[in-house]
């Protein structure tokens, strides 16, 4: 048995924080993708993560598929869910008020939650980590290998998203919709399609987050709401619409939360992120890392 040192403990908290924070970051990026194209905040964003985790459980544990195949199928399935959501609930409601859009995405999130409970019940589920459960030891801290997978996937997401929005035709077209939908329509960009892609893409990111975190934190039907709230916290903290801001803020939030849970009180750990969210909203709604001008001119 290794002796638990204070440094070891701190490193442990740090890794936990970065891991959870990466999930918040991915949720926040999902928020931003949809927000940038449509100015809608999708309250069902956390449900994509929940569905990602539970569908992954289905493919690995129930259907006993090999891990890579299960992962691809999971992401594909949730991406489809995101696209269907856009087609059947967002697309028909053109020119709806903000209040209506909020309520529609809330209704969808309740529906997803209900479906998940119908299929999986109320118990939490888990499936084995990607590369075995033997931890690595690092300065007296035990680090699960899955943690490295989470970090790896987050990094892959960041790189892929950057390439998508900076280099590809579709990515650039989506940014154009964000800047000025009317002008985008005039130059021949199909705004409808871009909105569809934005929902599919942010569902895919949610699915990835759910699939990598479930071996560490388990997953059950009602996880979505709190994840969405904290992910939104990260998105606002990083400046709504800002892509890198979201990642930095998500990880920052995760670390704060984990330190608070370890050193102060685990009961209030959820409150910390939320109090931070409220303070940022009240004092500086453009985010800690965004500036006021930039928050008006939307950009990644």
């Amino acid at each position: 048995m290794t002796k638990i040192t204070l440094t070891g403990q701190l490193i442990q908290y740090l890794f936990t924080g970065v891991t959870v924070g990466s999930i918040y970051a991915m949720v926040a990026v999902g928020f931003n993708i949809i927000y940038n194209v449509t100015e809608i905040i999708n309250f069902a964003q956390g449900e994509f993560v929940m569905l990602g985790g539970l569908i992954m459980v289905f493919f690995t544990v129930t259907a006993k598929l090999p891990l890579p195949l299960a992962f691809v199928l999971t992401v594909a399935a949730v991406t489809g869910v995101g696209a269907l959501m856009e087609r059947f609930t967002i697309n028909p409601l053109k020119n709806a008020s903000v209040l209506t859009m909020i309520i529609v995405t809330i209704a969808v999130s309740i529906l997803f939650k209900g479906i998940a409970m119908f299929v999986w019940g109320k118990d939490p589920y888990i499936f084995p980590p990607f590369s075995g459960s033997k931890p690595l030891f690092f300065y007296g801290a035990a680090i699960q290998t899955q943690t490295l997978w989470v970090l790896f996937m987050t990094a892959v997401m960041v790189v892929l998203m950057t390439i998508f929005f900076k280099k590809t035709r579709y990515g650039k077209a989506m940014l154009a919709c964000a800047d000025n939908p009317e002008a985008a329509r005039l130059v021949g960009i199909r705004v409808n399609v871009m909105i569809l892609i934005s929902f599919a893409l942010s569902a895919a990111i949610g699915a990835v987050a759910g699939a990598v975190i479930t071996p560490i934190s388990l997953m059950e039907y009602d996880r979505g709401a709190l994840l969405a709230l904290k992910g939104f916290g990260a998105a606002v903290l990083g400046g709504l619409g800002s892509f890198y801001g979201a990642v930095v803020a998500g990880i920052f939030l995760g670390i704060i939360e984990s330190m608070c849970a370890g050193l102060v009180s685990s009961g209030y750990k959820d409150a910390v992120a939320l109090i931070l969210l409220l303070l940022v909203l009240y004092v500086r709604p453009s985010g800690l890392f965004g500036n006021v001008e930039a928050s008006k001119i939307k950009e990644f």
């Binding site: 609930t89 309520i103 529609v104 809330i106 209704a107 969808v108 999130s109 309740i110 529906l111 997803f112 939650k113 209900g114 479906i115 409970m117 119908f118």
Partner: peptide
């Protein structure tokens, strides 16, 4: 499974 029904009604 009431939340399923709630969600559907609201939507």
């Amino acid at each position: 499974f009431d939340i399923l029904v709630y969600g559907a009604i609201l939507l």
